[in-house]
Design a protein around this nucleic acid. Sequence first.
DNA 1: AATGAATGAGATTTCATTCAT
DNA 2: GATGAATGAAATCTCATTCAT
Lengths: 231, 231, 231, 231
Amino acid sequence: MKKGSKAAEPDTNGILSDTPRGDARRKYDPEQTKRNILDVATQEFSAMGLTGARVDAIAERTNTTKRMLYYYFGSKEGLYQAVLEKVYGDIRALEQDLHVSELDPVEGMRALVEFTFDYHDRQRDFVRLVTIENIHGAKYVEQVKSFKGRNVTVIHTIEDLLARGIAAGQFRSDIDPIDLHLLISSLCFHRVGNRHTFGTAFGRDPSHPRLRARHRAMIVDAVLRFVRKDD
Amino acid sequence: MKKGSKAAEPDTNGILSDTPRGDARRKYDPEQTKRNILDVATQEFSAMGLTGARVDAIAERTNTTKRMLYYYFGSKEGLYQAVLEKVYGDIRALEQDLHVSELDPVEGMRALVEFTFDYHDRQRDFVRLVTIENIHGAKYVEQVKSFKGRNVTVIHTIEDLLARGIAAGQFRSDIDPIDLHLLISSLCFHRVGNRHTFGTAFGRDPSHPRLRARHRAMIVDAVLRFVRKDD
Amino acid sequence: MKKGSKAAEPDTNGILSDTPRGDARRKYDPEQTKRNILDVATQEFSAMGLTGARVDAIAERTNTTKRMLYYYFGSKEGLYQAVLEKVYGDIRALEQDLHVSELDPVEGMRALVEFTFDYHDRQRDFVRLVTIENIHGAKYVEQVKSFKGRNVTVIHTIEDLLARGIAAGQFRSDIDPIDLHLLISSLCFHRVGNRHTFGTAFGRDPSHPRLRARHRAMIVDAVLRFVRKDD
Amino acid sequence: MKKGSKAAEPDTNGILSDTPRGDARRKYDPEQTKRNILDVATQEFSAMGLTGARVDAIAERTNTTKRMLYYYFGSKEGLYQAVLEKVYGDIRALEQDLHVSELDPVEGMRALVEFTFDYHDRQRDFVRLVTIENIHGAKYVEQVKSFKGRNVTVIHTIEDLLARGIAAGQFRSDIDPIDLHLLISSLCFHRVGNRHTFGTAFGRDPSHPRLRARHRAMIVDAVLRFVRKDD
DNA sequence: AATGAATGAGATTTCATTCAT
DNA sequence: GATGAATGAAATCTCATTCAT
């Protein structure tokens, strides 16, 4: 009664989560019901955290009832895990489209960094959910089948770029691919995940378009300087 | 869910928060009572988040009762804010001790990065609390008087280093100090804050001593390469 | 103070508030559940006041649990407002049945006063709740939609009586209908609402049957003498 | 923390309760301390009721501490009773000044009604406290020594007026003095005690100066018409 | 006479979940 | 497959009162 469920902070973006209405709305469409619940839950968990999210609030913004949520996902935690699973799945699909192996190493590295930057910059829900998972010691994502070792793709990509760059005399030969991935992630993730405290501390919102462009260039620059071979 | 509150995950470290016992424990010592509550709360909030933390759990690990917690801090949120205030205050104190202005620009920059790295590496409570605040859109830290614009110190330090480095022909002249601070923070923060998902994804824990040293060197290297003037 | 909650002082009367059982008690009957809560709450709030009433005490005397009270009414205050709404609604219903327009002005006035007297005399819960609302500056009743300006009915009745009485040369023409309503209300309300202090002060309980009849006659008499045209 | 103690509604008037500072403020002045507590308590109880008043809130607005409140008055209830005692004492003092026995019966009756009207109109704290006592079944005032049978003075005054009026052929001979007192009280009390709901219901505040004058005249008129002998 | 710190008992409210249909 | 009503357990917070100085 008091606060209803204002939930949805200004913060969530729907990119991951639009419910496609597709064809004529059938009366009972389990798949659509599930998808609808999942979409709403993604927003709510992302906005409020696992403990902060309210089952009631999720149910309320759904086309169905709270009972269905339990019917399909068993528990609040189950729903949260389903959200994690979906969100990580979404990335994988995108990553496949990135064909850096066809590019010159420097250009490939630039493309990889820009892709990583853009992805984090847009998928705030994802960034938030990863953050939330870390608060919980990653114990839910550990149970997500599709997660374990999933990032090998990126690592392979980086290995390939490094190898070709070294061969071409462009890159240093003493860089660990996983460390490099961490470095790139750090630069792309932090400015999104911590933009609120950063904004409050410095009166400067990192998600502002002008800053966004500058940061993108800066990060690409920093990574390239880092991998480049000294003359 | 519903796990009672065993609180204290393996995760918290007590570096920020030991309660100094000083002399013999007096019966009425408000300062100590407050400090004691604050220390326990720091751990609990850091481990469980604002919504996840339980007032009962905090009180239980205290030398006093739940009632005192409300007596001194008014509400759960009030206590959380007091924790934020304390934690941010702790850093400021340390930052003062860092006299990079007496060092050569390159060495000063190295010292600054190493300090930042070490601080985040050790103060996991701090890193977690910042993360948690960002989940809440920084709305609590905004109300903390001592916070707004407090980081100017770091920025001034960076400005001084950059200016001297430029004058000495060592550094590039096109770097924005706040952007540079963000870059350094990103590198130091991310590996701590997101080490759980990172560890799960790559089977490699960034807080392991061996990795720790390597990351420290890598980050210093990356920053120096970034600021260094091209020949 | 601290008396647990034996609730129900000798004072409450159940006239407003019997729960009609209708047919066999069904398991799921939201309307009945709500009515049941409302009835018990009416007695408790009337007996103890808003702050004095205990949610636990209300729940205990209900066929359901405390939780349902929040499910349907949101908060203690919400329940209190619902009680006010119901109680004021009950009067309105009764007022409709009073067809004084068909009576001779003097007889009509007598009927109105007698009705007002009888209503207050019987509905002590109502009188107490109005008193309680006034302690709170009427701030809850102000939020009750159905309340604002609801008493127009009585005023219209009085206007009609006065107009007809003036036309017939029976009543004075200088009487404001709202003032007259206040006068009648005062006489009927005070002896009920303040009968305890009155009883203590004069050793005479105004609700005693013998006094009751005498007061009724006196009040009718006083009002008629007040409105009657001087010869 | 949440609401502090806004207490003091706009409603209370300080007429009963000014703390005279008299001579130079001595360091320890028990009488003044007690008076101060009593004055603040009068306002708080009058504004919030017995259950609604907060011991903390009272103490806060006092020049002393909560402990003293218990030191002098024993308990919240004890303080409340002391307030009742003081307030009733204040009236008695005033009533003595009313020498109606020297006036013509009609003028005496008018003077009595006007005095009663003015007293209630001004002493809202008193009116509220009486109301509050009635909510509690007058059980506290019963224990106030100075209360029981105190109103005999008024009754004697009325008896005297009636007797002289009857003797002079001005008043009816069938009026019970206590009933008449009740009638006068009703008219003077109700418009003050219930002015909030009345104001909300009819959009007309009975304490407005213009209405005040009209009501005063009306009530005097009504009483005189009631007691006057029919020709 | 006076005080700030402390407190136990109990108050209101919230939450994830299940029941009956 | 779907639903509105119901709920126990636990959470946050409040209150009058007392302790130690």
